[in-house]
Computed example of a mutant assay.
Amino acid sequence: MKSFQGTERIIYEYILNHVNDLGDISAKQIAAIAHSNTTSVNRVCKKMGYASYTELRYSLPHDLREDSDFSEADTAKNKTIEKMTQAMKKVRVVYLYARGGSIVSVSYLSRFLSIANIPHLVITDIHQLALASEGLVLLISKSGETQAVIDLAHNAKRKGMKVFAISKDDSSLSHVSDFNINLNEPISGLSLYKRESQLRILEIIDQVGCQLLSS
């Protein structure tokens, strides 16, 4: 907002107030309302990140809807994280399990649990849960389709234990779990940046850790 002054501010506010009608409004009409010219309209559009008014009038409504969707997804994720952390603070013990590269994330979460003085156990073998009868199981799987992780989730559910997960949205693991923090980013096996998904998981663990350590 601060980058728009005078006539540009009028144009900017008019565009935002008529986002859903821009398809029927020309740059000349906006210029006339602002007592300016189409050059000023296009200059405002460029400051907003668009090459021209033509691009803005068709792209802005879609971009704003996407921003709204992301905001709603973040809000839902934050609520799930809060529910998870509150549950972890109340149970007798938290069991952590992952396979492959996600084991790093489990170790990272274990550090937060230790600092928060929450009893927990990092499971390295699915059979370690055999003698458990209470507590909470938190599973991490970037695909949500690793069979060993899914099997452990089913075992925990049969014992009446709560199962939380950090995994891909709409995965097999997410359907088994009581709560799942969705990894909404698409995961491609052909990606040159195979560690990107693990970094996103670590970002979620950071959020979980901050919640655990908050009063």
Rank of each mutant, 00 (worst) to 15 (best):
K162N: 07
E66Y: 13
S36V: 02
A76C: 05
M161F: 05
S215V: 13
E196I: 13
T54F: 07
S107I: 12
Y97G: 00
Y50E: 03
A98H: 04
L190D: 08
D21N: 13
L139Q: 04
K162W: 06
R158F: 11
S114N: 15
V44N: 00
L136I: 09
I15Y: 00
V163Q: 04
Y95K: 00
D170Q: 10
H175T: 14
L199E: 04
H62E: 05
I140P: 00
P61K: 06
Q147E: 12
L212S: 05
I181S: 05
V19P: 03
G100R: 09
G49W: 13
E196Q: 15
S52R: 02
I181P: 00
R9T: 07
L129T: 00
R111G: 04
L192H: 08
G100M: 04
L173P: 02
M88T: 06
V176E: 09
I30N: 02
S177R: 12
K194M: 11
P119S: 14
Q147W: 09
Y50L: 03
L64T: 04
F70V: 07
Q207P: 00
R43N: 07
E55I: 02
I181D: 08
Q5P: 00
Y97A: 06
Y193K: 05
R43K: 09
S110G: 12
I118P: 02
D178L: 13
Q86Y: 15
L139S: 08
D69V: 15
V137E: 05
N78Y: 09
A132W: 13
G189S: 13
N184I: 11
V122I: 14
Y14N: 01
C210D: 08
T85N: 12
S52Y: 00
I30D: 00
I204M: 10
K83D: 13
A32N: 05
V122E: 12
E145T: 08
R9E: 14
G23R: 06
A148Y: 02
I123C: 14
V91F: 05
Q198S: 07
I11W: 06
T85R: 03
T38G: 10
V106D: 06
N184G: 12
M84G: 05
Q198A: 09
D21E: 15
Q29M: 13
S143V: 06
A34G: 08
S167Y: 01
I11M: 10
G160E: 14
I118E: 01
A51E: 10
E145H: 01
Q86G: 07
G6F: 06
S26A: 14
S36E: 07
A165M: 04
S191D: 15
F70L: 15
R43S: 11
K83S: 12
K46M: 12
P61V: 06
V41I: 07
E8D: 08
N20F: 07
G23E: 08
L173H: 03
N37G: 02
D74T: 08
I118T: 14
C210G: 11
S141M: 04
R9L: 14
H62T: 10
E185Q: 14
I118C: 09
S215M: 15
K47H: 09
L131G: 06
L129G: 04
H127L: 09
E203N: 08
N20K: 15
R43T: 13
S167D: 10
Y14S: 05
S141D: 00
D151S: 14
V176D: 03
G209I: 05
M161Q: 08
C45Q: 08
V208I: 15
S40H: 08
A130G: 01
L212A: 05
M1E: 11
Q5G: 01
C45G: 03
K168H: 13
A130S: 15
Y95A: 09
P119L: 11
L136A: 09
